[in-house]
Every structure is written in C-alpha cells, then in structure tokens.
Design a protein around this nucleic acid. Structure first.
Lengths: 116, 116
DNA sequence: AATTGTGTGTACTATGTAGTACACATGACA
DNA sequence: TGTCATGTGTACTACATAGTACACACAATT
C-alpha cells in the first residue's frame, strides 16, 4: 500500500458518511491546494512534508508515525532522540532489528515501569 | 563542536604525523573536490551527504554514527530498521528518551544475549 | 438551464542539497 | 629562483523538495 492510496482510502471512507471529507475541504483544512492533495492521493507526486503529513494524520484520525513511515520518513522528534546519543541508540536498534514485536514491546514496558 | 571543526581537528591531528592527510589528498581519497572539503571543514557549507560522511569516517578512523549525528542525520540503515515497524520503535524510543545511558546499554545487552 | 461541488491537468516557482571546476595566494624547499 | 604543495575564493550546476495558481470537465442540485 502506497502513501497516496492509503490516504485516498482513508479519506473516501470518511467521505461516504460525511461530505466534509472531499478533496477540496480536506485540503483546505490541512492547508494545501486541492490539486496538490489530489496528486498526492494518486501518487503522482512524492508524499508531502512531515508537517503536512502530521496535519493530514490529525485530520483523518490516522497514526502519524505510520503515515510518516509510508512516506519513508522518521518523525523528527524520534530522530532528535537518536541524535542526542547516536552511538547508543544506533547500537540498540541494530540489536533489535530482528527481535520479535513482543520482545520490543516488553522492553518498552520494562522501561515505562521505570526499573532504572 | 560543529561537524566541520570536528573533521578539521581530526584531519589535522593525522596530518601532523602523516603528510598524506592534507586537504587535497584526503579529498581525493574520499572522492570530493579539495575546495569542497575545505569549505566543509570551515562550516562554510552544510555537511556532505551520508555516503560522503561514511567515506570520511572510514578515511579518518572516526565513528560514522557520531559524524552523521553531528551532521544532523541518522544513518539510513537505522532509519530502515525503524521504518519497518514505525509505531513499535517510535514508542520505544520515546520511552527511552530520558533513560540513563546505563539503562539503554543494559537493554541492548539483554537483547544481545538473546533472551527472547 | 444555471449554479455548485467534485476531482484533476498543466504550468510554474522558490528553496535546499550536494556538489564541480578552476583560478589564486602563500609558504616550503631544492 | 623556479617549482611544488598547501588551502581557499568565486562561479556555476544538476537535481530534489514542496509546494502554488488557475483552468478545465463532469456530475449533481435547485
């Protein structure tokens, strides 16, 4: 599933029940030109900027991290976390590369429960 | 410490003991124009591409992850790891944001010792 | 039958990225 | 004293990013 198709599907789903989710109206609320959103949805142009993706996600009730990933981007707040301790986090992530989802969730839970 | 100053310092350190570490020669081995490397070292231009930073790191015996971070970039192999499971890793990293280095190292070690 | 809403095609633009090419000035040195 | 290595200034370029502006065609509405 491409970024564009995903957005189109998500918007059309909402459009079916609420006429306020036309290309034009969504574009206006998101702050881009309708023709641009149209092109985005048909993958005729590259996905928009992180900021625009964030506004789209909010508008359509989708997960920003997922949308960004479909656009091939990592959210800048996550990037900043890595940039502060690049060696540490790079090593950790390479270590976790092939770990099952469950193991990663467990690690996150351990940390959240603050056992340090 | 900026990217440029760091590179200049690292290169000059090697130059003092080995004449092969002049701007010109390093530039040639790294595959960029000498004037470009000169500008990079004086922070007169933005840091080079990830690929060029990688070659510089190898040439000067520096850590690529550290150099990339000074350039404000996260290495693309680490990005790719995140992009495969964006929600999972984004959550984990936000969780680990303020964790002490030691805790992160410990997590990495646990994973490395394969307890999953 | 005229208006409104719908998506889209075409053309254009500003800024950023990642450099190259070449000339120049200075100091070492043989 | 001419040549060589050293770093650097200036000018230019190709491509990517992130869009805008406006016109057009079609369908539904009133």
């Amino acid at each position: 599933m491409t970024f564009g198709k995903y957005i189109r599907t998500a918007r059309e789903k909402r459009f079916k029940e609420d006429r306020a989710y036309s290309v034009r109206q969504v574009a206006q609320r998101v702050g881009v030109e309708p023709s641009y959103l149209s092109k985005i949805e048909r993958d005729q142009v590259a996905p928009p900027s992180e900021a625009a993706i964030g506004r789209l996600a909010r508008e359509l009730g989708e997960d920003p991290d997922l949308l960004l990933a479909m656009a091939g981007k990592v959210s800048s707040d996550v990037q900043d976390i890595i940039l502060r301790r690049p060696q540490l986090f790079a090593e950790l992530l390479r270590q976790l590369k092939d770990a099952p989802d469950q193991a990663i969730e467990e690690v996150a839970r351990e940390i959240r429960d603050g056992d340090w």
